[in-house]
């Protein structure tokens, strides 16, 4: 386990993470899912996020699972996101399974846990479809339409704007630590462990300068937001409507709805 963690750690670079996240958000503008109106997708998500919890029939759940797996495929999700999804599902259920056996569970325990896993998987994939498939700005507009607070909707777009800056600052500070500090010898079992602790420690230490640097930046950002009328707009309903005017449902939305309904119909027919 520890060896695996260390290898992962070495391969994982901030550059890679940044690229994956941005690719996930903006790299798939040309997919079918991206063309669907965010409101349609959000309603669809509410449906698919809630529906599995209503059902206990494995076949039905499997049918839903296949459907959301296909939509996820359509969104061209970044590999990292898929990896995290699989990793999360496996560890969570695996852990529960092992512990329940420990407490005298038998094969019968496996069934309910598998079904629960399937449910979690369906809702997660539905969420990946919607939140990775939509570009953040459209997602923000969609949420805004449903009455989500402006500050949250703005924060989504802003988060993507500031992410590269944050990453760069953080990366450089981390490098300062790495280059000027002295990393412990990572040979052997104990060395690897020490090395891991060291890495976590310098990540934490890096937040001190990062907080100061970002504080300096956020002052300018907020002053600029004030000048550029951000708060003025938040207090004004007409402007919110102007922002939402770019949304519009079209044929893609209708097709998407029809396909979803037919698939569901099919699943229920089989059951």
């Amino acid at each position: 386990m520890k060896v695996v963690t260390n290898q992962l750690w070495d391969k994982f670079s901030i550059e890679f993470l940044r690229n994956q996240v941005l690719k996930n958000a903006y790299g798939n503008d040309d997919t079918v899912i991206a063309k669907i109106d965010p409101r349609t997708l959000l309603i669809w998500y509410v449906f698919f996020g809630v529906l599995p919890w209503f059902m206990h029939n494995p076949t039905l759940l499997l049918g839903l699972f296949i459907f959301v797996a296909v939509t996820t495929r359509l969104t061209k999700v970044a590999p990292l996101v898929l990896f995290l999804f699989c990793f999360g599902i496996l560890t969570q259920s695996g852990y529960l399974l092992i512990v329940s056996w420990f407490f005298g569970g038998d094969l019968a325990t496996l069934g309910p846990i598998l079904i629960m896993t399937l449910k979690v998987a369906i809702t997660s994939l539905a969420s990946i479809t919607v939140f990775s498939g939509l570009n953040p700005d459209r997602l923000a507009s969609g949420l805004l339409w449903f009455g989500c607070p402006d500050q949250f909707a703005f924060s989504i777009a802003f988060a993507y704007r500031i992410l590269p800056i944050l990453m760069e600052e953080f990366q450089n500070i981390l490098l300062s630590h790495r280059l000027r500090g002295k990393s412990p010898n990572s040979i052997g079992w104990r060395g690897k462990f020490r090395y891991l602790i060291y890495q976590v420690k310098i990540i934490m230490f890096s937040f001190l300068p990062l907080m100061l640097n970002i504080a300096k930046r956020s002052r300018t950002t907020v002053e600029a937001l004030e000048l550029r009328g951000y708060r003025y707009a938040n207090q004004n309903k007409i402007i919110k409507k102007m922002k939402l005017r770019q949304l519009g449902m079209g044929t893609v939305d209708v097709y998407f709805a029809i396909v979803s309904i037919i698939w569901l119909w099919g699943c229920f027919l089989i059951v």
Binding site: V21, N24, A25, Y45, V46, G49, V50, V77, L80, V81, L84, F85, G88, T123, S124, S127, I128, V130, F131, S132, P136, L139, S155, I156, A159, Y160, L163
Partner: peptide, 12 residues
């Protein structure tokens, strides 16, 4: 936003 929406882990 960062860990849920960006990484597609949003749990509704």
């Amino acid at each position: 936003i960062f860990s849920e929406i960006m990484l597609g882990q949003f749990g509704g």
